[in-house]
Design a protein around this nucleic acid. Sequence first.
DNA 1: TCTATAGTGAGAATGGTTCTCAATCAGTAA
DNA 2: TTACTGATTGAGAACCATTCTCACTATAGA
Lengths: 145, 145
Amino acid sequence: MTTSIDREVESRLAEQDVRYTRGRRMVVAGLSSAGGPLSAAELHAGVGNELPLSSLYRSLAVLEEAGVLAPHHGTKGLTRYELAEWLRGHHHHLICTQCGAVEDVAVTDRHESQVERVVDEISSAASFTPVSHALEIEGRCARCT
Amino acid sequence: MTTSIDREVESRLAEQDVRYTRGRRMVVAGLSSAGGPLSAAELHAGVGNELPLSSLYRSLAVLEEAGVLAPHHGTKGLTRYELAEWLRGHHHHLICTQCGAVEDVAVTDRHESQVERVVDEISSAASFTPVSHALEIEGRCARCT
DNA sequence: TCTATAGTGAGAATGGTTCTCAATCAGTAA
DNA sequence: TTACTGATTGAGAACCATTCTCACTATAGA
Ligand SMILES: [Mn+2]
Ligand SMILES: [Mn+2]
Ligand SMILES: [Zn+2]
Ligand SMILES: [Zn+2]
């Protein structure tokens, strides 16, 4: 099945003369259907341990380099990846300190513009040029309350 | 030299029957005088490679457990630590994508209350119980512009 | 002082991630 | 189609931040 995200990734990679191979498609598909960022190990398990780990890691690196994926450095010794914002849309994260789950959360335009105003004011006061921001909320998820 | 932070850490550890030893003091001192979170390797170098790495890592773990330090998972394969918020005060981070530096940035009460309102609204919409938040701004620092 | 417990340091072990290299695949030209 | 060429893959070794082990030392309390 070819989704719309698949098609967008396809053309993005074509622009950069990077092939959209079977393994890379599996990674994108795995992350497309996830509710939050996934680690290499989680992706590996998610595809029934097809796709060798070395290839999986290489695919993650290639797709990150191509701007298709964004790394998310969460808990200790583990990098999780998610689709880049131009594919999935901007969002923030709810991180459960109990079970460790990271959940995507959409954000309204009103909230987003408020956050952006704060980001811009903080940045300009520090002579910093902001490119993006991440608002991460830690606490207890609905299941762990 | 015994700073005020030193005294606060001292009593916090005393409450928990955890000794405030030479190595632990070196870690707290190193982080007190830093402008952002530091990794184990950075701390190690900062004290002239006194304090063996195994002891340094153990001190970081003990101080984190005691609530004196907070880990910051920023870059790949590297955990940086900073003083907990009750010691250093709440702040946010400017992360330079060019040089990798992480800089603390103070936040005004007005900004903070705006951010907190957004955090609360996002959380309650997701049945999430927020405990803390982190606003991380990525971009170029003044030096790398 | 004696004893029990906490802390230390050197090095081994662990585990996520990256690297190596030979084999295979995909695009291109003849 | 066939031959050529560079990209991609997979198995395993290597890497490196972090954690563990264990014998030794320091400290607090009886
Ligand atoms: Mn996400
Ligand atoms: Mn900080
Ligand atoms: Zn949870
Ligand atoms: Zn910089």
